[in-house]
């Protein structure tokens, strides 16, 4: 169903739709809101809420949220808009590797810092067993390099082990 302004009540996987700011502005049923997306990141990783003030958020494909540093008219029929940021289709929302690398350095919680051997294994896509007594779920997997902590990617901590979520094409044997 299309409305006069071109917006639709259903999600269209071929184009980008700006997320509604809040539930009150929601048109597409089930679409997450900007507030929910920012709140999830802020609560999960302890970022400052202002960390995303310069970004607009978009959905292309059900539950695939993109972060974009500018704004264009919505809907936008183009190939990509900023970076893939968060997947909200499953019950547990999952941040992308790119978003963790870009925004995860500002995280103040749910960051597991791996030693050198574990960091290399994580990058190979392997499951590791780091010291961690914090939350289960998706963590920022990081390591120390050049005197600071740098995120590598997303780790899923479950049943006492850290499962690397590094996509196949990004895995490396260093």
């Amino acid at each position: 169903m299309s409305r006069e302004d071109g917006s639709s009540r259903e999600n269209d996987g071929q184009r980008f739709d700006r997320l509604p700011a809040t539930a009150d502005e929601r048109i597409v049923e089930g679409r997450v809101t900007r507030r929910e997306v920012v709140t999830w990141w802020v609560e999960r990783f302890g970022l400052e809420p202002a960390a995303f003030d310069g970004h607009t958020f978009w959905e292309k494909g059900a539950g695939k949220v993109w972060a974009f540093a500018a704004d264009v008219g919505s809907p936008a029929e183009i190939e990509a808009l900023g970076m893939t940021f968060l997947r909200t289709r499953q019950e547990h929302w999952k941040p992308t590797t790119d978003a963790i690398q870009r925004f995860g350095r500002e995280a103040t919680r749910n960051v597991v810092v791996l030693d050198d051997a574990d960091a290399r294994a994580f990058l190979r896509g392997e499951t590791t067993d780091p010291d961690w007594d914090g939350d289960w779920g998706y963590l920022v997997a990081a390591h120390e390099i050049a005197d600071d902590i740098e995120p590598i990617g997303v780790g899923l901590y479950l049943h006492g082990e850290l499962r690397s979520q590094v996509p196949k094409g990004r895995r490396r044997q260093l």
Partner: peptide, 10 residues
């Protein structure tokens, strides 16, 4: 994406 660019529209 590897470079962390969020300002690009492709």
């Amino acid at each position: 994406e590897r470079c962390g660019v969020t300002s690009v529209a492709v």
